[in-house]
Structures are given as structure tokens and as C-alpha cells.
Amino acid sequence: MNIFRLAGDMTHLVSVLVLLLKIHTIKSCAGISLKTQELYALVFTTRYLDLFTDYISLYNTVMKLIFLGSSFSIVWYIRRHKIVRRSYDKDQDTFRHYFIVLPCLVLALLIHHKFTFKEVMWTFSLYLEAVAILPQLVLLQRTRNIDNLTGQYVFLLGAYRALYILNWIYRHYTEPHYVHWITWIAGIVQTLLYADFFYYYFQSWKNNVKLQLPA
């Protein structure tokens, strides 16, 4: 464990807890894309298949349970909670799941480290995580209103993967056999997707104006 990875995990943890806390306290999911949240639940499910088979560390297991629990709770809140669901903007959140899931699945079946079920699912989760934010970014551009909690959520989510890239660079130089180009490419694509959001986020923060994404 290196500082970049710990910082990345903590940033990721804070991002999902900020979102869960927001939904739980103000009982609203305005501006949040259910599609993205469902895709993240799928990412964690397909990535953590080894949760019960390979024990790596208490930290690893606890964090996996927290990510699984929080992502499914967020989906439950938006779908089932009698108050929260009323604030879900389903007419704007229309990104088709299969436009994202199918290409990632096909890509995982074509490009992977080993052709085993767990390995293909793990690779699928990497590709899926890279693009899972798209419905949320589309929704933000459509609704154009970004309350600061949602802005912070997306920012932290992007920051976590950027920290992971630093972790991969660090491990590449400190652990000789640590080469995982699939992880790296998916992680870089994911961070680049956030790049334009980062740009507008910093602009709004620097000029101290409300965050507006160009249509």
C-alpha cells in the first residue's frame, strides 16, 4: 500500500459517502443519474467476485463491503425510497445502459489478461468503470444546474482515479513484475473523461461562480 493508493481509496470512499449522506439527509437525488449509480453497482459486483474466495487483507475486504453496500444503497434510495424517488428526473436521465455495458462486455471478451470467467468479469468492470460516469455528465449538461454536492461528488470520483494513476506509476518503479496495461489504459481513459469537467470545475471555483457546463 502506498500513499497514492491510500489517498485514492479515501477519496473514492468520501465521494460515495458524500453522495449517500446527501441523499439521506436532504431526501433528494436531484441532479444524480440513477443510470450511473446502477453502473457503479455493476462495476463493484463484477470486480469484487473474489470477495469471498481470495482474502487479501482486512482493509481490502472492509472497503469492498463498503463500496458494494453504499452503491446498492444509493440505487435503492433512488429507486425505492418513497420521498427520494420523487426527485429523480427520469425524463432527463435517459442514457441507455446497454450502450455502455455491451461494448465493455465485448471488449472484455476480446482484450483481457486471461480468458477465465473471473478475469473477464474483472476486466469488464475496469472498462465499465471508465465510462460509467457518462450518464451523470450528460445529465449535468442537460440540467445545467450543478449543486455543489453533486459537483464535489463528480470531482472526488475523478480525483480518486487520477491518484490511482500515480499509484500505478509508483508501483511500476517499485515492483518489477507489476505490469497491467489494461488497468492503466482504462484508468487513463477514465481520468481523461473527467478532464473537461475538472476544467469547468476549477474555472467556477477560481472565479467563484456557480459551476456551469457548456451545453
Binding site: D54, W122, W168, E175, H177, Y178, H180, T183
Partner: peptide, 10 residues
């Protein structure tokens, strides 16, 4: 073969 190390990541 060595279990791919990045499996110890989240």
C-alpha cells in the same frame, strides 16, 4: 503464475 498484483487493489 503470479496472481495479478493489481487484484489487491480496489
Amino acid at each position: 503464475d503470479n496472481p495479478s498484483v493489481s487484484k489487491d487493489e480496489l
